[in-house]
């Protein structure tokens, strides 16, 4: 049925101003600017920092964090949080180490699938039982950590034949770690999916105002469960990177990545209240966090001061990168 609707033309001027102002345009690049500023600062502190060796080390260390943060960003964009990512990744390292001897090349997809399923279960619990994501994943973190301990027998599981995951330890062009390239691919894939499909609208609407999204017929529940699936899969993939580096799986191997991953998301400028942000921002945020972790000792900051500097820089970075005009509630 057609709806021939036309109102009489109104000649009044449009309200508001036109294109984005310089300041507004700049806020979009703030994570990148913060990243560059940090690199410059580290280079000034120690000119030897900008060597291929230390940059490669940063890239290699950053790869699992990038994947974790980028995948979990989807949940944050929906207005939730996933505290279980590190526990899922730890459990996945154990599963991979246990399954590699039996499944060989199939172990990698199997682990990612298992991690995605764990995400799905948490997502379904969050949506259907209406438990806040913070609580669901807090419980999930505890449960999955314990499962990892049980499954691994509370110890490191050594990988004897790592031929099927060794490719992640290759270097593209001799310098760029393959794991870093794969992390960029993951970020690009998620970013493209958001950019090219209606997912971006659905996720943002869910994050900014769930009731408005629901009343516009947006598949809010599916979108949220999907975000949890991606977050779980990301944790699984990060686990594969960790195993390929350490030739083993361990029940607490990824546990220390939780807070850096959350920091990466917020340092990128993604609003913890939902709606506003992107995976590119989390990529920049993960690099900032890794640079601080790896860079501060390299340039010779005493370890006691390192923590102070880290905390200060994180807070400053969030203040710079968050686009305050898009975020009304600060909590």
């Amino acid at each position: 049925m057609s709806t021939p609707v036309a109102l009489k033309p109104a000649a009044e001027a449009a309200t508001g101003d036109g294109g984005p102002r310089l300041g507004r345009r700049l806020t979009g690049f703030m994570p990148l600017i913060a990243l560059l500023a940090l690199v410059v600062a580290l280079a000034i502190a120690d000119p030897g920092f900008l060597t291929q060796r230390s940059l490669t080390a940063v890239a290699r260390t950053a790869a699992p964090l990038i994947v974790l943060a980028a995948a979990a960003t989807l949940i944050v964009l929906c207005g939730g949080i996933d505290l279980s990512i590190a526990a899922v990744a730890s459990l996945s390292t154990v599963l991979l180490a246990l399954w590699l001897p039996h499944l060989g090349g199939l172990a990698t997809p199997a682990v990612i699938l298992a991690a995605a399923s764990i995400g799905a279960v948490q997502g379904v619990a969050h949506v259907l039982l209406r438990i806040p994501s913070f609580i669901v994943t807090l419980g999930g973190m505890s449960i999955l950590s314990a499962v990892a301990l049980v499954v691994s027998g509370a110890g490191t599981v050594r990988v004897v034949d790592d031929s099927t995951v060794k490719w992640l330890e290759l270097y593209v062009g001799g310098y760029v770690p393959m794991s870093f390239v794969m992390a960029l691919v993951v970020v690009a894939l998620i970013a493209l999916a958001l950019r090219l499909t209606p997912l971006r609208s659905w996720i943002s609407a869910t994050g900014y105002s769930e009731s408005a999204a629901r009343l516009a017929g947006t598949p809010v529940d599916l979108v949220k469960i999907g975000a949890f699936v991606v977050s779980g899969a990301g944790a699984g993939f990060a686990a594969i990177m960790l195993v390929s580096r350490q030739f083993s799986g361990g029940p607490t191997m990824a546990d220390n990545l939780l807070l850096p991953a959350v920091a990466a998301i917020v340092v990128g400028g993604t609003a913890i209240t939902g709606g506003h942000g992107s995976v590119w921002r989390s990529l920049a945020g993960a690099l900032v966090v890794t640079l601080l972790r790896v860079g501060l000792p390299i340039v010779g900051v005493p370890s006691a001061y390192e923590q102070i500097l880290y905390g200060v820089i994180i807070v400053i970075a969030v203040t710079l990168t968050l686009d305050w005009s898009k975020v009304s509630i600060i909590k």
Binding site: P198, S201, A205, Y208, S209, A212, L215, A216, K326
Partner: peptide, 23 residues
């Protein structure tokens, strides 16, 4: 709070329910 998503664009708000119209 329920009708529109304030920070999202006019275009995104207008097509939110009928994504097929822009896909």
């Amino acid at each position: 709070t329920e009708g529109m998503v304030g920070p999202m664009s006019v275009a995104e708000n207008m097509t939110l329910a009928k994504q097929r119209s822009r896909c």
